[in-house]
Design a binder for these strands. Structure first.
Lengths: 188, 188
DNA sequence: GCATTTCTGGAATGATCAGTCAAGAAAGGA
DNA sequence: TCCTTTCTTGACTGATCATTCCAGAAATGC
């Protein structure tokens, strides 16, 4: 069996993610995709099925990578509170590019069960890691223990989304850092 | 001059708003619009120009109405802190329907200057009213005076957006109320 | 009843869309 | 060198898109 040319599937998917996060699903045409991915149209359909399957895959991959990055920040400091702060500050620094997760929720709400499942899976995994670290920080006396870990996690994630919308609306890094700081104050 | 049939322009615009806030600009077709607005296709083009002009007008009208509603809550209580809480709680109660402002920012970012101008105008007006009430609440000793009124207002608005994304992602009223409560704690 | 105006509804236009097809170029295995 | 496989390219198909055109219905003023 002759293994030949074979474009880089993951690299193409990353290019698709970049287009989708900027223009959304409806705002992206297959022409935009094949151009950005640097592959032929037929290769796109052979490899990914159709536009919706490619989008789902893009959201799934993005969600997994973003969840990994959040968790890496959470666990990247010895002191739990520092990990939590690092997670929020990373969002402030990276918010100049649109978030595919927020965009996807905003564009489709709860109308596509397969998409909802992807979001929920990523959310569950991130929340699990966050609750551990929050609980730890509460035990350290760094976070308010009168809030449940669930409430604290939900609040921080809502603020991540809020910061990203603020950034999409024009807020700069300084303003975003202030938002992160005040959000952390709320749970301290 | 014979004034005749004349459909209700504002009622039609409200119907368009309802479609746009659920499906976004790209996800809405002119057929969906004429059906929802209960007017002929030609009337739509005669009255509103084209799809983009109608969308801009819808966003503008929605932003004005939403800003009015926020300000009414802010000013609806004798005690400033109660007004601020009422604003946040109203968001928690009404978040089952998508917000056209959040959707519009999310879909287009800063790529359409005319849209950006609409958002900024509404934001400026709301922030002006909010800062007054925040300042008052700080003087009452109900809000933390070490935060600037600007920072506090920005934080509350980011949390409004965050709550709306959370709702779009499936969060129920109870969870939203908790988010509002913790957000208020942050600035207290 | 008649004229005027506005709205409706359907048909048409041309663009763009997602997705398919077919021919050939590129590349590695034998 | 030849075969097999994969990728590219461009043309093609319907469908749908926004928008325009047009003929006629509805409603009001006179």
């Amino acid at each position: 069996m002759a293994r030949t040319k074979e474009f880089d599937r993951e690299q193409a998917l990353d290019a698709a993610i970049e287009v989708f996060r900027e223009h959304g699903f409806e705002g992206t045409s297959t022409d935009m995709l094949v151009r950005a991915m640097s592959i032929g149209r037929q290769s796109l359909y052979d490899t990914f099925g159709d536009k919706w399957k490619l989008y789902s895959l893009a959201v799934e991959r993005y969600a997994a990578a973003e969840t990994d990055a959040h968790i890496a920040m959470l666990r990247g400091a010895p002191r739990a509170q520092d990990g939590i702060r690092a997670m929020m500050e990373r969002v402030a620094e990276n918010a100049s590019q649109a978030c595919l997760g927020v965009n996807s929720v905003c564009e489709f709400g709860q109308s596509r069960p397969d998409l909802t499942a992807i979001h929920q899976a990523a959310d569950r995994r991130l929340k699990h890691a966050a609750k551990q670290r929050i609980s730890e920080a509460q035990a350290d006396g760094d976070l308010d223990a009168t809030l449940s870990t669930e409430e604290t996690a939900d609040f921080l994630f809502a603020n991540v989304a809020g910061m990203r919308i603020a950034a999409r609306g024009g807020a700069g890094p300084a303003e975003l850092k202030t938002l992160a700081r005040i959000a952390l104050r709320a749970v301290t």
